[in-house]
Simulated scan of single mutants.
Amino acid sequence: MAAESSPTLLLALLVLGIFADPCKAQELRCRCIQTHSDFISPQFIETLQLIPEGVQCSRKEIIVTLKDGQLVCLDPEAKWVKTLLK
């Protein structure tokens, strides 16, 4: 009996694994390991993502994607970053 239910259980776990998205829904950590406070000209910034503090991370995170595809975490306390957010 146990041998017959094992394939069914394995199949059910596989199906659940396919539909679960652990990267988006269950990531409970900060995305930025270190931040940069050096000025980056806005002409080099393609997108800006603001992640408020919450259960996943106890600090506000600002991540910019540069036009060359590089991701940079900015220091939210830097004066130029505060001006950029306004």
Rank of each mutant, 00 (worst) to 15 (best):
V81E: 05
Q49M: 13
D68P: 08
S58I: 11
L10P: 00
A12I: 10
M1Q: 05
L16K: 04
S41C: 02
S37F: 12
T8C: 03
D68A: 07
D68S: 13
M1F: 06
K79W: 03
K24C: 04
E46D: 14
E53T: 07
L13I: 09
M1W: 07
A12S: 10
L71D: 11
L16A: 15
A3E: 07
L11M: 10
V81D: 02
L85Q: 00
L74A: 04
W80G: 01
C23S: 12
E46A: 15
T8S: 06
F19M: 11
L9A: 13
Q26W: 14
P52A: 09
D21R: 14
I40F: 06
T8K: 12
I51R: 15
L14T: 06
C32R: 06
E27C: 08
Q43R: 10
P42K: 03
I33Y: 03
H36Q: 12
I33T: 06
P22Y: 00
I63T: 12
E61F: 05
G54R: 08
A25R: 11
C57T: 11
L48I: 13
Q70M: 11
Q70N: 14
E4D: 06
E46C: 07
L11F: 04
K24W: 07
Q49R: 12
K67P: 06
Q70S: 14
L9C: 10
P7Q: 02
T8M: 07
L74S: 01
F39T: 01
A3N: 01
I40M: 06
E27L: 12
E77G: 05
E46Q: 15
I51A: 06
R59S: 12
L84G: 02
P42E: 06
L85E: 00
